[in-house]
Design a protein around this nucleic acid. Sequence first.
DNA 1: GCTCGTATTTATCAAATGACCACTATATCG
DNA 2: CGATATAGTGGTCATTTGATAAATACGAGC
Lengths: 256, 256
Amino acid sequence: MRLVTSQNAAAKKKTAARRVRAPRMDSGERKRMIVEKAIEYFAKNGFEGSTRDLAREIGVAQSLVYRYFPKKELLLDQVYEEVYLARWNPLWESDLRNRDVPFEARLKKYYLDYAQNVLRNDWVRILIFAGLKQEGINDRLFKLLHDSIFTTVITEFHHAFPSPTSIDRDKDKRELELELVWSLHASIFYISMRKWVYKTKIPSKINSVIEVLVEGFIESLKHLNRGGVPLDQAAKSHADLPKRNSFKLASQLARS
Amino acid sequence: MRLVTSQNAAAKKKTAARRVRAPRMDSGERKRMIVEKAIEYFAKNGFEGSTRDLAREIGVAQSLVYRYFPKKELLLDQVYEEVYLARWNPLWESDLRNRDVPFEARLKKYYLDYAQNVLRNDWVRILIFAGLKQEGINDRLFKLLHDSIFTTVITEFHHAFPSPTSIDRDKDKRELELELVWSLHASIFYISMRKWVYKTKIPSKINSVIEVLVEGFIESLKHLNRGGVPLDQAAKSHADLPKRNSFKLASQLARS
DNA sequence: GCTCGTATTTATCAAATGACCACTATATCG
DNA sequence: CGATATAGTGGTCATTTGATAAATACGAGC
């Protein structure tokens, strides 16, 4: 499959239809076009995809890509920037804070909108490819999520469902609350992974699913604040499990 | 960085310390060793990692790898098999079914154990690399998860928390229940992704987090069965949202 | 200690790939 | 129409990489 006899190679060279010269475009437009096709291409093939292949998809000579992006790396950077920060909606945070709307409705609106804008083929795959390749590249995004969404969600929850003990939330409890928000985020992100990475079937009524997830999230938060696991009880709660489990797991994730 | 002057190249060749001949090993042992190192190597570098690099890590000549795996592809297949199916514990399903133990405890035990066995560096990264590269490769794993875990969890939940209406669960409701199980799975998987793909900090008390997630999951299932969103109400529940959202989202995920 | 099987290595090939440069063609402007 | 700027192309180089084959060296058995 990889091996091609030199005869074949020669034949291919002879047969190779002379390239139809690509139409002359404005420099800026061409650059945009390259980036857009690159997003599509690298989302499909990973960052190890070749510039030749990409150029073929664009319908342009390989060397032209290098006119606009002297290093492949620069193109990849551009692809990453384009995909991410471009799709962040600054209204999300302020809408989440708008107490004229019921908390649950705000949450649903946000997550429906987030899913719609962000959980697409290109987005998910490029995010993951980038994460796998160079750690830390998504830190900005996570900071954004944390600072403007996650903390807001928790704050607004406590405003919507004030609890008598909510004043003395200790560090552990705050961490667990944050984990519940991560969990909601993960659940929705994973739907997109199932579709665009694993290519499995997902339910058609995604919007209903998201609403159920949001409702479940609120229930979970309530449960946690109701004192379901005030952490001093947490130890007791799995007292019937072999104690080793917890330790082994913790060390497992710590090491490798 | 890629460009090396021919002088450098020559110098490198001259300098290249003569390989210390690798100790002669039993054929079977060597094969095992190669696979093990390959798991580690490809988990880190992705399946595009080179056989030369791998051989260097093993401390062996590149061509030796080809003695045991005549095609790189064959080695990759082996790596995949090794990582996956090897770690599946058949007891999980039967333990989940053991009604002598309270439902919640069974769930916690399973998810703590699953996390411990499965959410490691190699496992997560190889699963994702594989999924990104060739769609469908994880189908077997998902079928296993679905058939022996997810459906069991739902069955056992209904046994533990029988509800008057639980007889007439329609198709939509069953789908939503399944999605809640997916959501729990996703939440735990994502913790591992945060650690091993994105390399961000995760809470130290992972076991507590998992327990909270399991409790939240049960609350969510209860909520769903309590009639929180009997689907005829689902439409109403976000009546205050722009209707377009739902449609746009659905079509978004459908197309791209 | 010599022979022989085979684990391991060195050397090499063909293809693919990132990068570069000189050349060509085309649109625009006087 | 002819000059000019520049978008676009072909060809090529050095390196990397999967793959192969011939040469080497190690250890077991006589």
